[in-house]
Amino acid sequence: MRIQNRKIKPVFTILNIPNLLFVLLLYMSTWPSVVKTKPPYAYLAVLVLIEIYFVVGYLVKKKVACHDISCILFAFFTIWAYITKTGKAHSLLVMPMENVFYVFTTHYEEMFRGLMSSLYLVFWGMVSATVLAVILGVLIGWVTRLNQAILPIVRIISPIPSLAYTTYVVAAMPNFKISEIVIIFLGIFWPTFSRVISTVATIDKKIIDSARVLNVGTFTMLKDIVYPYVKPTVLRNLTSSLSTAFLCLTGAELIGASSGLGYFIRKYSEYANYTNVLAGIIFMGVVVTVLSFLVRFIQNKFIKW
C-alpha cells in the first residue's frame, strides 16, 4: 500500500513516460506511411482510451500498475508504428495499427454476428456440460462402488484434449452447430466431472456425521449437503471451463463453420487478409476478457464460504 499511495511530484503529472509516448504516437500517426493507410479515427480512439485509463488510474486513483500497463501498451504501439511507418517489416504481415482498428468500423456487423453465434454455442456447451457434470458427479461421487468403477475410466478420458476428436465429431454430427456444442461439451464435461467426483470424496466426515445425526435421507444429503459442498469448486472451475470452451470453439470453427469468432479469423486468413485476422484476434481477446469478468462476478456472488 505504501507504493500505491506514493505522492507524485507535480512535474511528473504531465512529464511522464505514458504521456510522452502518447504525444509521440499522435505525432507518428501524421507521418507518411509506406503502405496505404486507412483513416486513423478508430486507432486514435483506442489511444485516447488508454490515455484516459492512465490519467484516471494513475493520476487520480494513484495506482502504479495503471502507469506501468499504459507504458507497456504505448511502448508496443510505438514500436509497431515505427516499424510500419518506416517500412522495416513485411507490410502484409505487419500492417499499420490504423488499418487493424479500422476493420472494427467496417466489419462490426459481421463480427457481431460471429460473436452472437459463438456465444450461443459457448453458453449451451458450458451450461449443459457443467449441469450434467455436477448432477452425475455428486451422485457417482457419493456411491462408493460407482465411484470406484467410474473414476479410473474418467481419469483416462478427461486428459484427452477435445481438439483431438474435433474432426471425428464434426464428421459424426448432423450439423455444425451440434458438433460444436458437442466438442465444447466434451472439453468441459470430463474435467469438471472428475473434479466433482474427487471433491465429493474429500468432504469432511464430520460434516457427513452431523448431517446423519439429523436424520437426513439420501436425497436431502445429496441436495443439501454434498451439492453445496462442491458448489464453490464448480464455480472456481468455471474460469478454466470458459477458456477451454473458447479453445474448443476456435479449434472447431477453424475446421468448418459458417459464422463465429474463429470462423472470422479463418476466413480472412484464407484470403491472406491478415489485417482482418489481427482485428479478429483482438476482438476475441476483448470478448474473453469481458466474459471472464462475468464469471468472476458470478463467483463472488455465489461463493459465500
Partner: peptide
C-alpha cells in the same frame, strides 16, 4: 436423539 459434537459441526455454507 439430538447431538452436539465436540468439533464444530455447523454446515459452513448456511
Amino acid at each position: 436423539r439430538g447431538v452436539v459434537f465436540q468439533h464444530y459441526s455447523l454446515f459452513p455454507w448456511m
